[in-house]
């Protein structure tokens, strides 16, 4: 039997879904509402020097990488299956967009985190 690579994608899907369910709402509130409106959190929480320091720390890098990459893979898998639900069947184009784009973003996130230094 040919080995399937599906489990890898389902693992990424599950990890992203779980991470976004566990802390996603808090992150959205803080970065999109709390900081811009100085609501509950400091207005300066996402200041340049602070975010740079965060992204230069190995733990910060791991968090940024996990959040962006896993959220994207989670969404990509759902969108891919939603296309099917709406009668757009898994062709090369749908696969290229739904798996190629998150892959490209994964590489980009890793690259930007690396050039930010340690």
């Amino acid at each position: 039997m040919k080995r399937s690579n599906d489990p890898i994608f389902w693992l990424l899907f599950g990890a992203g879904g779980m991470l976004s369910a566990l802390i996603g709402a808090a992150l959205v509130f803080v970065s999109g509402i709390g900081v811009p409106l100085a609501l509950l959190v400091s207005r300066d929480l996402m200041r340049y020097e602070l975010m740079l320091g965060f992204a230069q720390h190995w733990l910060g890098k791991a968090i940024v990488f996990a959040v962006i990459v896993l959220f994207l893979w989670h969404a990509a898998l759902r969108i891919f299956h939603m296309l099917h639900d709406f009668g757009i069947h898994a062709g090369a184009g749908a696969k290229l967009i739904c798996f190629g784009l998150p892959l490209l973003c994964t590489v980009a996130v890793a690259f930007w985190l690396l050039i930010l230094g340690f």
Binding site: G16, S20, G24, V28, S31, G32, V64, V67, I68, F71, L72, H74, A75, A76, L77, R78, I79, M82, C105, A108, V109
Partner: peptide, 14 residues
């Protein structure tokens, strides 16, 4: 469909 906005948020962070 929640996945669409999860992707949007990830892209904003990206």
């Amino acid at each position: 469909a929640t996945s669409v906005l999860v992707a949007v948020y990830a892209l904003i962070l990206l």
